[in-house]
Amino acid sequence: MHVLNDEVHGRAFVPGRGPAIDLQHITKRYGGVTALSDVDFSVDAGEIVALVGDNGAGKSTLVKAISGTHRIDEGTILMDGEPVTISSPFDASALGIETVYQDLALCDNLDVIANLYLGREQKRKGSPFLDREEMESRAAGIIADLAAHIPILDKQVSALSGGQRQAIAVSRAALWGSRVVLLDEPTAALGAAQTAMVYSLVRKLKERGLAVVIISHNMADVFAVADRIEVLRLGRNAGTFLPGHDSSDDVVAAITGSRENAGKDK
């Protein structure tokens, strides 16, 4: 398998320097409301971490802090052990962090290739013109690696199924995200077969050495793919769980707060 990410960003993954991304003592306030309070969250390269919690628990706020949509008020973000500042989506992209939004952020009127390269179109050397052939052949490579079931690359995205659209959004994140990929409710609108397809896609991201964060409400999702489960409740860490070690009841108890201090301490 060729690793497109390194070709794109010109740097290789360096193991053994701490988590790919490590958020420490994060606090975020909206006016008088504290959305996150002293939250710790880290993901290793090649690890899939599920971020779960009830509505208003702070999942979205934490994801927005990583994807650069919102700035944090207090705390530190380290990538491979180095402190970084993420103050815009542009910063996040430059650091190799990509987000797959729940609405997928695809342009339905463009074809699969154009969506994979949206905002990052390749040009012919020394000209303002698009290098269609280069984009098409590289898109064919990444699709063959990740999502072989996407039939025709020059098909408009509006003609594809929900699962195929999700696959394109994830493939785009894999194409550009060299270190961290955030997936917001990736299976919310999908049927069983399509969900399984997204799971296999997520595992391929892991095989590529990416740190993957999945935000989900769906316990089946979480236990099927995650290596580790982090629960947020009322803007605070509410426990760490391991599939195969803890049960989904334990996780649900932590989410709802029916059993305080459930799960093992970090």
Binding site: P89, F90, S93, Y101, D103, L104, A105, L106, C107, D108, N109, L110, A114, L118, G119, R120
Partner: peptide, 13 residues
């Protein structure tokens, strides 16, 4: 792209 999905275009930089 903007005509198809303005928000997606904006997020794509």
């Amino acid at each position: 792209a903007i005509g198809g999905n303005k928000e997606a275009a904006r997020r794509a930089g």
